[in-house]
Write a protein that binds this DNA or RNA. Structure first.
Lengths: 211, 211
DNA sequence: ACGTCATCATACTGGACAGTCTAGTCTGAC
DNA sequence: GTCAGACTAGACTGTCCAGTATGATGACGT
């Protein structure tokens, strides 16, 4: 309201983001059908008409929200992966990767997004496909690339890099994620438990696939 | 309509089951909010009033459906577990257990139930808790009992039976289940792939925890 | 000064739907 | 034959809600 000055699009742009923010909250907590467009309008401090001029329909707004959240989360997990230095650091390297990924994926907002998208597979199969691609599939892809390097250095035995990547991914993610899906955000491991879980997962992985 | 003969409750009982059957279909394919009580009535060949005299409300009917499905599925997975004979059969024994469990859990109806319940965690947290207890938790409990026996025979090393049970469970279930949640029933592995997957999971498990 | 464009508040349309009510039918029991 | 209880078709109530329409305000560029 105050510094709307220089740029003519600024006003519109702010509203746009306010709508997205409000819509994200409301969709995440009420689901697709449970969401009321009037509520989104009032929460974003904008008239209903403005919501419709910006986004066209409830469905389009929903798709936009889910698409942008999945993309952002993927980027946060995967930006700037460090290189493995000394071979002896392999275990610590895998732990660091896993801890970071698990911490992001178990954020309440992302858990809720996952629940929402899974619940709407029937209505929006494309969204779930996109979430799978930008989530687990992308993670497994990154891991595959890492493991190809390890493979060349002789640090990986007994499986193709791609297969090893999938096992690693689910060893780390499966238990916390599946618990959280059903038992709610309170079931997400705290920091200590998370570290212990990841350490065990990495140990099991290396017993099966390590040098 | 024809052979309603001897038992006075038969008529009512048939309707009751017809309603449950129809409601299961409709809830599973449309979700809770997306479900229309008129449709359930007409699909079960019953008047709307009858639906309400039998079940009281939409919510009560939903809870009934989900509760009964989770119980039934759990019973089907766990009824009559065979004993392990010769120690040498350990690998085959674990494979058989895992294959059976995975086959049941990946049935389209149960996958859809899982999606539905996950999507409704916000509205019905109790249902999700029950599904977790009668699903993964129960499976892990059974495995724990099995592994305690193995432990006594010296066939299990390096972890508590309960921890080993959890790792085993998710090694087997995680990848297929998570793919199916998001990619739809078409992503469920066929028989060959399922067998290969289970064989690999058991091998990894035994490498880490076996004798 | 004037037009344009984003926005506003608010009313409205049209349809969906949970749950109730009515008035009457069918069936099996006594 | 009559009664009770299960059932039926369908109308009805009240509410909710996506999306549109209206008419006004205020800021900007020219």
């Amino acid at each position: 309201m105050a510094q709307t000055g220089a740029r003519p699009w600024a006003r519109s742009d702010e509203k746009h983001r306010a709508i997205l923010r409000a819509a994200r909250e409301v969709f995440l907590s009420n689901g697709y059908l449970g969401t009321n467009m009037d509520l989104i309008a009032s929460r974003s401090g904008v008239s209903k008409q403005t919501v419709y001029t910006h986004f066209g329909s409830k469905e389009a707004l929903f798709v936009e929200i889910v698409g942008s959240m999945t993309g952002d989360a993927g980027d946060r997990v995967h930006h700037e992966r460090p290189e493995l230095g000394d071979d002896a650091e392999l275990e610590a390297y895998l732990r660091a990767f896993a801890e970071r990924q698990l911490r992001i994926v178990t954020e309440p907002e992302l858990l809720q997004l996952r629940r929402l998208v899974i619940g709407e597979v029937g209505r929006f199969p494309e969204l779930a496909k996109v979430l799978y691609e930008r989530g687990p599939q992308r993670a497994i892809g990154e891991l595959t690339a890492m493991f190809e390097v390890l493979d060349e250095r002789g640090l990986l035995t007994g499986a193709e890099p791609a297969a090893a990547a999938e096992w690693f991914n689910w060893l780390v993610m499966a238990a916390p994620l599946n618990r959280a899906m059903m038992l709610g955000d309170a079931a997400v491991p705290g920091d200590d438990e998370l570290r212990r879980h990841v350490a065990d997962a990495v140990r099991i992985f290396l017993t099966a696939f390590g040098p």
